[in-house]
Design a protein around this nucleic acid. Structure first.
Lengths: 229, 229
DNA sequence: TTGATAATATGAACACCGTTCAGACTATGA
DNA sequence: TCATAGTCTGAACGGTGTTCATATTATCAA
């Protein structure tokens, strides 16, 4: 009874083909310049066929966003890297968030899809479901906790909040860079480094924060993305 | 010979009508949901007529971005407000950048158009030409200089760079909020306040910065936006 | 082996989009 | 009165995401 399995494999192969074609177009041309018709032409199927595998164009790019998070997550394996281990706790935090900025430079299309573009907003509601995204987050929070334990950061600091604040600051520079909002004379890398360093210095001062702990529990009541039945 | 003048007035009236219709649609529905056809229908003209007043859809929204900057600039007249004058120098800085965040909440569509959307990138290259934008910037830089003179910020701090860094940090929160990237449990206002305060605290520590002074001179060699002849 | 069934793929169409252009209309100045 | 210049439009071009009846094909039960 391996027929059903073969069918499933075939189906998965076509699905992956669609994703590969979409990714290639998407990385080279950006979300808005990729059309279903172009993807269809690339995989030598009719445009309508794609809708047998994905309910909408957005869902294709939702799947690509997952790829993006994996791509961003991988280098944070450098948490276990020996060079990383020898760094001072604060330098590790710096390295982690600098990595996020670097990712925005190396993979601008993925980055925009994951953090900026307002066309695929469902991404946010979904990506917390991926365990590896949650693992990434707790990895970072752990490292911040190391800093707190080493009295580099004040004991009053909530590592989850600190993580969020750092992400947002870095995201600001990345967004301006990506949306072409920097003057010719400005060096985005220097600005990113400065923003990151100023934030780290600010966190060390121990000024009181308002933000409360963010519960990262998965909301099981939230509707999942529609899937082809 | 007032006929030519009347013609010009009529022309300007239609132009303004297009902008008003576009703005109303745009503020309510967002850039991507506004089509030339909808604008045309609203002003009871044919879609083609719009192209006699604007060379492209983008140029309409470029004009709207100018409106946005005026909208953002006006409240910074509170620089001259008596309550503002009595505030401590650092609180003034805080108020100014908090105002930027508030603007992103009150006018999300304008904000996205001005700082986030990648669809109308020409905006950046152009808006520095508006003197009032430059006035805004120098206003802020002035206030930062007051902080430096009052030894709230270190003398080594470049106020232009500080302004830029603060803008980016605030922009990060605003972007995440607008692109719907915040978890349900997160309070954007609190995060914005924290990011701003952490940045201000960090700037006060006097850590060295890499970023160099940004020359805000207008680049006269840059091509201006195409205009209807 | 035959025939019903379920899955898969497609062409054509729908309703949009930004933009262009030949031609109609109209007010103006000679 | 008439040519002209300015204004406007209908129709079209080539594009978009998506839907659906239809055709093809592979599977499995009879």
């Amino acid at each position: 009874m391996g027929i059903k399995e073969r069918h499933e494999r075939d189906r998965e192969a076509v699905r992956r083909g669609i994703l590969d074609a979409a990714r290639e177009l998407f990385v080279n041309e950006g979300y808005h310049n990729v059309s279903i018709r172009k993807v269809a032409e690339r995989i030598e199927y009719s445009p309508a066929a794609i809708y047998l595998y994905f309910p909408s164009k957005d869902d294709i790019f939702f799947a690509l966003a997952e790829e993006g998070f994996r791509l961003l997550g991988d280098p944070s394996d450098l948490v276990n890297h020996e060079r990383f281990a020898t760094q001072a706790p604060l330098d590790r935090i710096r390295a982690i968030f600098w990595r996020v900025y670097e990712f925005s430079v190396e993979h601008p299309q993925y980055f925009a899809l994951m953090f900026v573009d307002r066309s695929v907003p469902r991404i946010t509601r979904e990506y917390e479901r991926f365990t590896f995204v949650r693992d990434m987050k707790s990895h970072i929070v752990e490292q911040i906790q190391v800093c707190i334990d080493a009295t580099v950061f004040p004991a009053t600091l909530d590592p989850t909040v600190a993580c969020r604040l750092l992400i947002m600051a870095v995201l600001g520079v990345a967004t301006m860079r990506l949306s072409d909002r920097l003057a010719r004379a400005e060096n985005a890398d220097e600005l990113a480094r400065d923003v990151l360093n100023v934030m780290l210095a600010g966190l060390q001062t121990g000024i009181p924060l308002q933000s409360t702990v963010v519960e990262c529990a998965i909301d099981e009541t939230a509707p999942s993305a529609a899937r082809v039945s």
